Simulated scan of single mutants.
Amino acid sequence: MSLTLTPLMCARLLKERGEGAKKTWMERVIGGIEKRVLAAYGGSLWWFLRHRWISPLIWIVCLAGTIWLFVLVPKAFLPPGDSSVIFGAFIAREGSSPDQMKALQNRVDETLHQDPNVITDFTMTGATGFLAANQGITFTFIKPPAERPPIQEVTAQMMGKLNLIPGVFTFLRPFPVLEISTGVTSQQQGQYAFAVSGANPDQVYEVSQKLLGKLMAYPGFLTVSSDFYNNTPNLDIELRREQAKTYGVSEARILTLLRNAYSQNYLYLIKKPEDQYQVILEMEDAARANPEDLSKLYIRSDNGQRLVPLGELVNWKSTLGPQAVNHLNQFTSVCDPLLQS
């Protein structure tokens, strides 16, 4: 292109122009502006050369202004601004039941409603699709900036009040006006996060706990947390296979019974002209509150002729273990969110 087409077009489109050729209106306008700029620059240059003492003075003023602006301007990459919205999460003890989380959620709502700067708030628990079972989130809408203190001060006051609730640890931060997120880690508990991942879960958990200790010792962070909960009450159920064979009950039938009793199993969809309803089979709340409630379940043998107590087919014991096994890029991971002070 540069060796063939461009020279050809220049030869065809650009006309020969000698001394005294008539200029176009654009050349006259641009040329006039250029002459005025050069004249002003030349005059100012000669003036400064005759008064050289002014140049160091201007340099000192510019340096002082730069330092003053450096101190005044926020150092964050993207300052949060004031959106009049405060976002955060509250964490309860490991193994908290849905009823306990609901009671704590009500306490959080009551505390937020008592704040004179709050207009309304929204809290949610039980969304296990993206929240742990012992966590909840809150969106708090506060008054306009002219009617309250700065949003950072209001956030600190709210977090102090919520952390006085027994059994609750709260993380709050102003909802940013503009935010950049890669989506790799959750930002519910802080502005930043470190993630540790690897193929060996034991090494990942060990390194993450060491990293958490180092981060907690750093004075620049207001709060440091982790999504690794390793002391959650679990119930280990051991199948007595020989006993099950004696009673004529298959393993699949036992697993189906447990799923129907405790996992809110969706069975059928009732369709009506105006709406549709899901049929969900589960045990009553009072019949699934303790591990001993497993003994209340009965199961039919494969031939349907015998009703066998579940306690004759399985053994169970209470243990402590991980609440969830998180993954990052298909590897076991632990995320440590940070809230900068």
Rank of each mutant, 00 (worst) to 15 (best):
I30C: 11
V61I: 15
K210M: 14
V207P: 02
A133I: 06
L69T: 11
S341L: 08
A133K: 03
V154Q: 02
F87Q: 00
M26G: 07
K15N: 13
T6Q: 12
G136K: 00
A103F: 06
G81C: 07
M1S: 13
A199G: 13
T232I: 06
L72P: 05
T140N: 06
T120Y: 11
I270D: 12
E147S: 13
M101W: 05
V108R: 00
L255D: 11
E274L: 13
A21M: 12
G160D: 12
D121P: 04
K75Y: 00
N234H: 07
P201M: 07
M1K: 06
A289P: 03
Q323I: 06
I119L: 15
R241F: 04
Q276K: 08
G20I: 04
E251S: 08
L172K: 02
L38D: 14
P74S: 10
F77L: 15
Q323P: 02
Q243Y: 07
G65F: 12
P98N: 09
Q191K: 02
A103E: 09
A252L: 04
M124N: 06
E153K: 07
Q152C: 07
K161Y: 12
E19K: 11
D236S: 10
E274F: 15
S295Q: 09
A324E: 12
G220Q: 09
A199H: 11
P144L: 08
F139E: 00
V73G: 09
L294N: 00
N134W: 00
G183E: 04
L222G: 10
M158K: 00
Y205F: 10
T185V: 03
E179Y: 12
M216N: 12
W47R: 15
Q189K: 07
L212Q: 07
E153C: 06
Q323V: 07
V37R: 05
P322T: 05
Q330F: 09
D302V: 14
T223R: 03
V85H: 08
W47K: 14
V204N: 03
S263C: 14
D82R: 00
E147M: 08
S301R: 01
D82N: 08
Y218P: 03
A133N: 09
M124W: 03
R253L: 04
S2R: 12
R148V: 00
